[in-house]
């Protein structure tokens, strides 16, 4: 038995990112919902998040998210997959007919619960990222996003 690793020891040979791609996207939309932003353009999400991923402050949020660049096109399977999962789970929807915008279905309480589930450091980083995102929105750098009043 001495020659065999215990499950605990085996477990220590593995690690996972501090925040998964899915959890990050969930936190991102929850924080947007808290800030009353409920409809966002879908096409720009990946490239926008790609820009943020290069910022040292936000890097830890993107540990589980990979990006690929083909010329000027940025794609991310992890982001697309997380958005699809959020949709399947009923947290977001996509507006017909061309699905070009994402609708966030979370109410504030649920959003707050989601954000509270993160550790303080992660939560602050997501808050800050969303604040920056909103600033850019206000500067008109994105397509129109709708807010809930």
């Amino acid at each position: 038995m001495d020659n065999v690793l215990e499950i605990e020891q085996l477990g220590r040979m593995f690690s996972k990112p501090k925040i998964s791609a899915y959890d990050f996207l969930k936190g991102f939309i929850a924080e947007l919902a808290i800030n009353n932003i409920v409809i966002i353009p879908r096409s720009q999400i990946t490239s926008t998040l790609f820009d943020y991923s290069k910022n040292e402050k936000y890097k830890p949020l993107f540990e589980d998210i990979g990006f690929n660049q083909y010329g000027d096109t940025v794609t991310s399977y992890d982001i697309e997959d997380s958005i699809a999962n959020l949709q399947v789970l009923g947290m977001i929807g996509k507006l017909n007919p061309s699905f070009e915008r994402i609708v966030i279905y979370l109410d504030k309480d649920l959003s707050k619960n989601i954000c509270d589930s993160f550790d303080e450091d992660t939560r602050q980083r997501i808050e800050s990222l969303v604040r920056d995102f909103i600033k850019q929105l206000n500067r008109g750098q994105y397509e129109r996003c709708s807010t809930k009043f």
């Binding site: 609708v103 279905y105 109410d107």
Partner: peptide, 29 residues
Amino acid sequence: KVKQHLEYFAVNYSGIQADHQAKAMQLKE
């Protein structure tokens, strides 16, 4: 503001199950 609210209403009304669903879905998730 009314226009924007109506847009939000239209979307949410068609996906009315959302709140309840979101909570249940969260559990599923």
